[in-house]
Amino acid sequence: MIKGSIVAIATPMKQNGVIDWGSLINLVKFHLINKTDAILAAGTTGENTTMTLEEHFRVIHTIVKEVNKKIPIVAGVGANSTKEAVNLTKMAKEAGAEYGLSVTPYYNKPTQKGMYNHFKEVASVGLPIIVYNVPKRTGVDINNETILKLSKIENIVGIKESSGNLARALELIDQYKDKEFYLLSGDDSTACEFILAGGHGVISVSSNIVPKQMHELCIASRKGKLELAYKINKKLMPLHYALSLESNPIPVKWALKKMGLVKKGIRLPLTWLSKKYHKTLLKTLKSLEVIKS
């Protein structure tokens, strides 16, 4: 079962935008040492939308090989073209991923029926699929009724809920309490409440920076240890805020560079973090003792 802190791992790049494969392997080792529960490879934080198909495959395969079955690997396989999403899912399966994360089709704004049929096609590949709902990025919101219908399809095994509507997420949790369906938060700032209510974990941006603390937060929340969960969550809230100062993964790559884990590299249309945010993020990193100066 996939649960706990699932890092949406950043893809290290050199200043010219070429993927830094050595740093990617070192990042994976960093997460294995610090108890990350699973890795999402080539997701939004991994800048999958700017990758070639060859790069996409190699990123997933590199992570799969380095992890060597120690923890589960989820691969980003979303696209707004159903045919492309199916092909990405086939590729992820071939690369060795155990799950695929497939976002609701963006820009073309399909109906609920269109999204149902889209994910049905993606699931037909045979790789277990986690549906990703993030309307603020995609312009479309898959409703709980459609998710319930999708959960009855073979190989659709979970939802990453990033609508920002905690009440609706809690409604989903209530519907699936006694069913084999993964309920994953896609929002670090509300993940604690989500898991305390019965969710299984979080696909996290913040765990790029504080993997051990996010792992511990998930454990405390899943065990219902309210005092400990709230204590960890309170400490991490400034980081969740700071990592959203500009579009993800801009702040997280800047933070990883400050930690000495990656070089200064990001692909257009994203740019390096604006100087006006450096002080805020630096202060947050120091307060969490992930950097000393």
Results as ranks from 00 to 15, higher is better:
Met1Arg: 01
Gly4Asn: 04
Val7Gln: 08
Val7Pro: 05
Val7Thr: 14
Ile9Met: 12
Ala10Trp: 04
Gln15Ala: 15
Gln15Asp: 11
Asn16Lys: 07
Asn16Gly: 03
Gly17Pro: 15
Val18Ala: 05
Asp20Met: 07
Trp21Gly: 11
Leu24Asp: 00
Ile25Arg: 13
Asn26Leu: 08
Phe30Thr: 05
His31Arg: 13
Ile33Gln: 13
Thr36Asp: 02
Ala41His: 14
Thr49Arg: 04
Thr50Ile: 10
Thr52Gly: 15
Glu54His: 11
Glu54Lys: 14
His56Met: 03
Val59Phe: 06
Val59Thr: 09
Ile60Phe: 04
Thr62His: 05
Glu66Gln: 15
Glu66His: 12
Lys69Arg: 11
Lys70Cys: 01
Ile73Arg: 00
Gly78Arg: 06
Ala79Ile: 03
Thr82Gly: 06
Glu84Ser: 00
Asn87Arg: 06
Thr89Arg: 00
Thr89Ile: 08
Lys93Thr: 10
Lys93Arg: 10
Glu94Asn: 08
Ala95Lys: 08
Gly96Met: 01
Glu98His: 04
Leu101Gly: 08
Thr104Tyr: 01
Thr104Gly: 03
Pro105Thr: 05
Tyr107Pro: 00
Lys109Thr: 13
Lys109Gln: 11
Lys113Cys: 05
Lys113Tyr: 12
Gly114Phe: 04
Met115Gln: 10
Lys120Phe: 07
Glu121Met: 07
Ala123Ile: 13
Ala123Met: 12
Ser124Ala: 14
Val125Leu: 07
Val131Asn: 09
Val131Met: 06
Ile142Gly: 15
Asn143His: 15
Ile147His: 01
Leu150Glu: 06
Ser151Glu: 06
Glu154Gly: 02
Glu154Ser: 15
Asn155His: 13
Ile156Met: 11
Val157His: 01
Val157Phe: 14
Val157Thr: 10
Glu161Leu: 11
Gly164Gln: 01
Asn165Gly: 05
Leu166Thr: 04
Leu166Asn: 02
Glu171Gln: 13
Tyr176Gly: 04
Tyr176Pro: 03
Lys177Thr: 11
Phe181Pro: 02
Leu184Ile: 14
Gly198Tyr: 00
Gly199Asp: 07
Gly199Gln: 12
Gly201Lys: 01
Gly201Cys: 04
Ser207Arg: 11
Ile209Ala: 09
Lys212Ile: 06
Lys212Gly: 08
His215Trp: 11
Ala220Val: 09
Arg222Trp: 03
Gly224Pro: 01
Lys225Asn: 09
Leu226Ser: 07
Glu227Phe: 13
Ala229Ser: 01
Asn233Gln: 08
Lys235Thr: 14
Leu236Phe: 02
Met237Leu: 09
Met237Pro: 00
Pro238Cys: 04
Leu245Arg: 08
Glu246Lys: 02
Pro249Leu: 08
Ile250Val: 14
Pro251Lys: 08
Lys253Trp: 10
Trp254Tyr: 08
Lys257Glu: 15
Lys258Phe: 02
Gly265Phe: 06
Ile266Gln: 06
Lys276Met: 15
Lys276Asp: 12
Lys276Arg: 15
Thr280Asn: 06
Thr280Pro: 00
Leu282Cys: 10
Leu285Trp: 00
Glu289Trp: 01
Lys292Glu: 15
